[in-house]
């Protein structure tokens, strides 16, 4: 009730289910696996020459021209309305389109997460088309997405590198002029990794020299641990810290107390 986040309560409840982590990881694996099946199993950037991929790239080009070219230009050169995508890479497309941020619904401080507009195949085709024009950050390899790294190291890296915007509990935070760092609960490992390598919206890029793939794996591990851990203290009140606690105390705690004082002093008749 007090968690007035943008996400609907039903989604939140869904994530609490014990099967959520399993299905989440399965989804992530399927997502990345599906993309890989279309490319090659070893590297993501290369191998755009095979015929099956060539067809996908052409499919992606059509989709791009229909849905993205208005702002990003027919040759990915960009325009006044959108940046160039030359060198943006598959990871960037997969993140932006895969989380529904693109295509942009309206101009604003920041592209919000919204329902995804394309199927997995279409997203993959788009990503491959953008990747075929100029190389960029590739879709991450499965070995870094298994969320089975070192959680305590990951949590420490998260506190040092990410918490100032995303909050230590990954609950998100405000930036200037209406921009914000979104909450990280319910984000797939693939998208977390892609966000780190591509720096979407207002996020800085954490390249492999800055945080090694192993570091990124640890961060994902810590986030997934926190997300899937049972809240030992009871309802987490949105993990928003003292503001949520204070609000809850005044409304629920004080509400109950005042109601009880009224009851105690009510006349017996």
């Amino acid at each position: 009730m007090f968690r007035t986040s943008r996400k609907a309560g039903s989604r939140k409840a869904g994530r609490r289910s014990p099967l959520a982590s399993v299905s989440l990881i399965a989804l992530g694996l399927m997502l990345s696996g599906g993309a890989y099946a279309l490319v090659s199993s070893s590297t993501a950037v290369a191998d755009t020459a095979s015929t099956a991929t060539q067809a996908t790239v052409e499919e992606g080009e059509k989709l791009f021209q229909a849905n993205c070219a208005t702002c990003h230009g027919l040759d990915l050169q960009g325009s006044d309305a959108g940046p160039t995508l030359i060198g943006a890479g598959e990871a960037s497309v997969d993140f932006q389109v895969g989380t529904g941020r693109m295509p942009l619904q309206a101009n604003g401080a920041q592209a919000p997460e919204k329902p995804v507009q394309f199927t997995e195949e279409q997203i993959s085709a788009l990503a491959q088309y953008v990747g075929s024009v100029a190389p960029g950050p590739a879709i991450p390899e499965d070995q870094y997405l298994d969320a089975e790294g070192d959680a305590s190291r990951g949590a420490e890296l998260f506190r040092v590198n990410c918490a100032m915007c995303h909050n230590v509990a990954g609950a998100g935070g405000a930036l200037t002029e209406g921009k914000y760092a979104p909450a990280l609960t319910g984000v797939t490992p693939t998208h977390i990794y892609e966000a780190m390598v591509t720096g979407p919206q207002n996020m800085p890029v954490f390249n492999d020299a800055n945080l090694t793939p192993e570091d990124k794996r640890d961060i994902i591990t810590a986030l997934k641990f926190q997300e899937n851990a049972v809240s030992v203290g009871g309802h987490p009140l949105g993990s928003l810290g003292p503001v949520a606690e204070g609000l809850f105390l005044w409304i629920a705690g004080m509400g109950i107390i005042v109601a009880l004082t009224v009851w105690i002093t009510a006349r017996s008749n």
Binding site: R159, Q226, S231, P242, V243, E245
Partner: peptide, 24 residues
């Protein structure tokens, strides 16, 4: 839950979390 210190981790002067507030 109130004040889940395990989420916050140990103090270290370098990180400052978003959404850092005092008690009400």
């Amino acid at each position: 839950t109130i004040n889940p210190i395990w989420n916050y981790g140990p103090y270290d002067p370098s990180p400052v979390s978003a959404g850092t507030q005092p008690d009400w």
